[in-house]
Write a protein that binds this DNA or RNA. Sequence first.
DNA 1: GTCTATATTTGGATAGAC
DNA 2: GTCTATCCAAATATAGAC
Lengths: 197, 197
Amino acid sequence: MPRSREENERIRQSAMANIGSAAMEVFLERGYHAASIEDIAKRAGVAKGLIYNYYRGKEGLLAEIVRARTDEIAGVIEEAAASPEPSEQLRRIVEGALGHIDRNPKAYRFFLHLQTQPEEDKILSKYSEMLNKEMSRQFETQCDIFRRMGAEEPVLRSLYFSSTLHGVMLMKSVYPGYPVEEIQALIIREFCPDRPR
Amino acid sequence: MPRSREENERIRQSAMANIGSAAMEVFLERGYHAASIEDIAKRAGVAKGLIYNYYRGKEGLLAEIVRARTDEIAGVIEEAAASPEPSEQLRRIVEGALGHIDRNPKAYRFFLHLQTQPEEDKILSKYSEMLNKEMSRQFETQCDIFRRMGAEEPVLRSLYFSSTLHGVMLMKSVYPGYPVEEIQALIIREFCPDRPR
DNA sequence: GTCTATATTTGGATAGAC
DNA sequence: GTCTATCCAAATATAGAC
């Protein structure tokens, strides 16, 4: 007796998710170029061939992962924007960004690895581009926040803020024992003035 | 008539340097994994086979480049240490680091790409390790500087300083129009108090 | 000392059986 | 829907001629 359509659909969904998360794991562990389809198939417990049934190939897998990441970045902004207070918004950005990286340092490392890909790499630079674009959006919002806080040079200040924040994320993702908590406090003290004054 | 030993030696030196710098160029342009020996040979204007006469292979070429980089890092510290004034030392570190990256953004990007290589990549993580070690040395010196400046928490402050500095380098190497000059002024204002007080 | 030709390996992708 | 077997391209590395 043939499987029902619903049953098939469920199987497809589950297989696809399974392969997707296996790919995520292997990419984080090995990096994009060094990761092989073979590895991913092994990790997912399926045959190589099956992967091509669900994804366009290695690049298709990456595309999926990058999309998930941009969603995540957008989520942090959205979270921050929910507050009416600019100083509080900034604090949420800091906490959102550092909290996420603290939970999963390998992920940020991977994306950083991706973003530092040489531009000449036509395949990968496309995805690096996507990440940059999302970060640009975040940056715009940030500039607004600084404007509303009455900064003299909001854009420059926002840039300085971003630099610091990304520097911290970078260090955290590269050096295991990095004390995020303390540093986070420093950033907040530096950039987020207390409301009551 | 056979060539003299000196002549041979000269030719060897020159060929080796030629290949080495070609490798550097191609690595910066393409990244380690994507760069092929073929590319490097073409760039150097020699045959593929010859490269193996001078280097152990692709990895040997990378080793050479990383060694050059660690020397460069050490150079910045040395330069800074030449000043007796701690605040001035710090300023030299900032200027040295940012100056270098401004002159050659691709290089920093490449090394960052290398350092964000997943740890599981046994081959590359070795070189990533070498870079980290040199940076640790730099960090130690930095802590001393902050100590001598009378900071309350020199290590934490040094860490924060490094984070900011590397964040700026990261942004500069990824975003073309990044205004290093202005940001550099901000850092110096923040971390390097004027001597006369 | 350098080149050309070739061996070897690896990994992405496809075709067809079950 | 999944697997096995195979193809094909690319790239590292080596052998041997000049």
